[in-house]
Design a protein around this nucleic acid. Structure first.
Lengths: 244, 244
DNA sequence: GTCTATAGTGCGATAGAC
DNA sequence: GTCTATCGCACTATAGAC
């Protein structure tokens, strides 16, 4: 890999991010268990969490290979080692399993993004933070995000609408940062909506085509640096050279 | 919509593109018929083409709503008005139907792109042509491209490999233009591979999220202008102002 | 060339033993 | 809390009438 540009912002490392956000599979499954305790038949937390980790991990693994619809619950049973009966102690239908996974990914995104973007920062800093946080988050939970994107159309109407709205929220966050930056004279943004939309597209490419970037040995930090450079090349044109 | 920038290159209109490429559903289905004549039981071209148009149109319509796997052949039969028996005169399995659609989309992309990019043009012109052609093509055949992207993982191993390779070809075309431009001093490109990859991502967003752009009343020409502006902001930095 | 009827398979979901 | 056995159903694919 050639040298990639430094930013003027604290380039917090990916490993720090991973540690600070504590986004282990187990943490997430514990959350899911607590929220769905009323419909999950198993009452012992330790047992339930262990099996949920297994179920979600296996579901993501098989579905990201051949699709959620193509995966039969018999596949899930065989690979996870849990019987059909045991599986149905954790969800009441295949659709419900899909919704549980989708819901959780969505909630995490919003939580982490709003947690880490500091409203007091300059827009140029916020922009870098938003890009970097989104990429690091989707790197940690890549199978989860890939699944959410590809299987959204298998959701029932109501849940599908929620998924679309959630997708738009991230874009809105970026657009607002761009517009604030334009107001303050830090950015020159002719088309905030389009700029935000395609920035989101570049962020999503990281988890949609991860096999490509893995094969080319591009680490997520390098990708983040590049996307920031790319977006800044557009919004900092004919503006002052300093980025804050 | 606010005013969008003009380019220094002949901004051929989208309607011209549509007329010149003659990419009607019927033309494409006639091609498919001729190539698959050996396995299609129906021998009268007029009848076969009419039904193929119906079959592909209906397949794309249902699949892009709820997924190819979820669409049963009974669904396809009901919506298209053809019986199960009739359907099986045109393909020998559901998988073969999937492969026919995927193959054709792939072949068209390569044909149109290489047909329209003129090797004699300056890299800056070639870049604009590549972006504009890709967007116009995917605009005309949006359901086809969306389907190809979302259903690629349902292909059997061999055909899946082909789909991945084909995806990389477009990216390679862009990368080569960028590198040629850098050699000639027209562009400043630090990371040709990454630049090509994320440019591709922005092009794909047009057909993957078309509902979004439709809702916002963004015409494809405006999107093309914007993407060209965005990419040029990166590769023409600190370079001469003229774009050719 | 198109239809209806049906064979054969594998699915999601559940009941009841342990 | 987990398992096996099984029900009823919807699916892909085909055979044979017209």
């Amino acid at each position: 890999m050639p040298h990639l540009p430094n930013t003027s912002v604290p380039a917090e490392d990916f490993d720090d991010f991973r540690k600070m956000t504590l986004l282990s599979m187990e943490e997430i499954c514990r959350d899911i268990f607590k929220e769905n305790q009323h419909r999950i038949k198993i009452k012992k937390e330790a047992v339930a969490v262990r099996n949920l980790v297994n179920i979600f991990h296996t579901t993501l693994q098989i579905s990201n290979e051949k699709g959620f619809q193509t995966m039969s619950l018999r596949d899930l049973s065989r690979v996870s080692g849990l019987s059909m009966g045991a599986l149905y102690s954790y969800f009441s239908s295949k659709d419900e399993l899909l919704e549980m996974i989708q819901n959780q990914g969505r909630r995490i995104t919003l939580k982490i993004l709003s947690q880490r973007i500091n409203a007091g920062d300059a827009p140029s800093v916020q922009l870098q933070t938003a890009i970097r946080t989104h990429l690091y988050l989707t790197e940690v939970l890549q199978p989860w995000f890939y699944f959410s994107y590809m299987e959204a159309k298998n959701l029932k109407k109501t849940h599908r609408k929620k998924a679309i709205e959630s997708d738009l929220v991230t874009e809105e966050i970026i657009r607002e940062i761009l517009e604030k930056g334009a107001e303050k004279g830090e950015f020159k943004v002719d088309h905030p909506m389009l700029t935000a939309a395609v920035t989101k597209a570049m962020l999503q490419d990281w988890y949609l085509k991860r096999w490509k970037y893995s094969g080319r040995k591009i680490p997520v930090q390098a990708y983040a640096d590049f996307i920031i450079e790319f977006v800044e090349a557009l919004v900092l044109r004919k503006s002052s050279e300093s980025s804050r």
